[in-house]
Design a protein around this nucleic acid. Sequence first.
DNA 1: GACGTCGTTCAGTATTGTCTGAACATTCAG
DNA 2: CTGAATGTTCAGACAATACTGAACGACGTC
Lengths: 145, 145
Amino acid sequence: MGRFLASLGMTPMAGRMWGWLLICDPPEQTASDIAAALRASRGAISGTARLLATSGLIRRTTRAGDRREYFSAPPEALDAMLGSAAAIYRQMRQIAERGLAATADRPPRARARLQEFRDVMAFVEQEVPAVIGRFLKDRNRRGQA
Amino acid sequence: MGRFLASLGMTPMAGRMWGWLLICDPPEQTASDIAAALRASRGAISGTARLLATSGLIRRTTRAGDRREYFSAPPEALDAMLGSAAAIYRQMRQIAERGLAATADRPPRARARLQEFRDVMAFVEQEVPAVIGRFLKDRNRRGQA
DNA sequence: GACGTCGTTCAGTATTGTCTGAACATTCAG
DNA sequence: CTGAATGTTCAGACAATACTGAACGACGTC
């Protein structure tokens, strides 16, 4: 439960909140529940919830006749996580291409390394979706078995 | 050249320095060269150099009869980068397993999501080296052609 | 329509992290 | 041996960040 160190590019609060949603019971919790469990203020929960929701790591649902919002960590969260990891490579490739464009007037020797960096990122960017697809197929097969 | 935003888990200085080493000419530069190019203090260069060197992103070489150290971004840097990316998944799996051990006395319903998270990370952790191996083979083939 | 509850927003604050600049150790040249 | 140059280390300043707590608006209830 003390795994709030999962702040990989996220805030510590986001790591704690997501970790809690992975192990809480019941799986759907209100903001007040989370605030009490994590000993955090409601303001922090509000901001973190929006961050996690836009990242696709958590889902916020409402119930008819109930103003409260229920948060949960759905299975799609893992897909979103892998997808965002893939986005990092795309981002790196784009940065490299910007760099190549900015150094167009430099001698080729100076650009060779950046060019290779771009190629590597392009390769990984292309292969990662294939791996994810294979994983999803594998999971579905196991889920239907 | 203004791509110092590459601080993905690294310090801004590390991003700037690595980016510079990717495009500088000549490819091998002394600490003074880098400090002058990036308008940074020698202290920052020293600390950042050690950080990047231990990560395998840069290589520091010396020449006989020359006290200065030469820094460069070798091709192996990309391999190190992909390897560290793979390490992230392993780390996540280990964290998940620690969480599972810590919640052994909880009802299974509360642990199911964490269990699945562990499985997904284990899968990716296993598949990523395969992708990297395929990439290396592809690059070598192209390099020899 | 008034109250309690819930979510959001924002200023303030504490904490963390990053860079600078000086002091020190070490090496090579004269 | 002296002196210049290089790399390292450390304290301090500066900036960025994350969280708290209070104020505000909105919805449901009585």
